[in-house]
Computed example of a mutant assay.
Amino acid sequence: MYDDILLPTDGSSATTEALDHALTIAADKDATVHPLYIVDKRHLRAADDDTTEEVRRSLEEEATHALDDARVRIEDEGVTPETARREGIPHRAILGYAEEADIDLIVMGTHGKNGRERLAQLGSTTERVVKNADLPVLVVEIGD
């Protein structure tokens, strides 16, 4: 049922906890886990002309660390990783990669919010993925 599991990563604690769930499912199903880092092009557009390359380098370094950490953890659990990096608007790039790689399940972490906090988070990447995905999305709520 789940042969390919997508794990969007930014290297945060939300990703780390979501990875736990992705690994459990992947181990049970002998699935491949796809850690994906999105270089948010909005950060590049917002940078001054003289700092764009510095911002790009910083984001690329973050991507390398996040993907390396995920890859090592996945391999340590005996699961096959397939890392990828894309540039774009995060929710769009996640959904595009999911289609391109024929992903069966997306696993994402999010910080648990309630009341007004939840309303303030309506624009989050996770929510946009959930609203627009044509495949199952497992949202792992992360406590603060």
Rank of each mutant, 00 (worst) to 15 (best):
Ser58Gly: 09
Leu44His: 01
Ala46Arg: 09
Glu54Val: 11
Glu61Ser: 13
Ala46Tyr: 06
Ala70Leu: 03
Thr64Val: 07
Ala47Pro: 01
Ser58Val: 02
Asp48Asn: 13
Ala66Pro: 05
Ala47Asp: 01
Asp68Phe: 02
Glu53Asn: 08
Asp48Phe: 14
Arg45Asp: 13
Thr52His: 11
Glu75Val: 12
Val55Leu: 03
Asp69Tyr: 04
Arg73Ala: 09
Thr52Gly: 05
Thr64Met: 05
Arg73Met: 00
Ala47Val: 03
Glu53Trp: 00
Glu61Phe: 06
Leu67Gln: 01
Asp50Arg: 07
Glu53Phe: 01
Glu61Ile: 08
Ala66Met: 04
Ala70Tyr: 06
Ala47Phe: 02
Ala66Ile: 06
Ala63Ile: 05
Asp76Cys: 00
Glu62Val: 04
Val55His: 06
Asp68Gly: 04
Glu54Tyr: 08
Arg73Glu: 06
Val55Asn: 02
Asp49Gln: 12
Ala66Phe: 08
Glu75Asp: 12
Ile74Tyr: 06
Leu67Thr: 11
Arg45Lys: 14
Arg73Val: 00
Arg57Gly: 14
Val72Phe: 06
Ala70Phe: 03
Arg56Thr: 08
Val55Glu: 02
Ala70Gly: 06
Ala66Asp: 07
Arg45Ile: 12
Glu62Gly: 07
Asp69Lys: 11
Leu67Ser: 02
Ala70Asn: 07
Ala47Lys: 03
Glu54Gln: 09
Glu62His: 08
Ala70Val: 03
Asp48Cys: 08
Val72Leu: 09
Glu60Lys: 14
Glu60Val: 10
Glu75Thr: 15
Glu61Asp: 12
Arg73Gly: 00
Ser58Thr: 10
Ile74Gly: 10
Glu61Asn: 13
Ser58Lys: 07
Ile74Leu: 04
Glu75Ala: 15
His65Pro: 01
Asp68Leu: 04
Arg71Glu: 08
Arg73Asp: 01
Asp69Met: 02
Leu67Pro: 00
Ala63Glu: 03
Thr51Gln: 15
Leu44Tyr: 05
Arg71Asp: 04
Ala66Val: 05
Val72Gly: 07
Glu53Met: 06
Arg56Gly: 01
Thr64Glu: 12
Asp69Cys: 04
Ala66Tyr: 08
Glu77Arg: 14
Ala47Glu: 01
His65Arg: 15
Val72Thr: 15
Glu75Cys: 11
Ala66Asn: 06
Ser58Glu: 09
Leu59Thr: 11
Glu77Met: 07
Ile74Arg: 09
Asp49Ile: 12
Glu60Asn: 11
Val72Tyr: 06
Glu77Ser: 14
Arg57Lys: 15
Asp76Ser: 09
Glu54Asp: 10
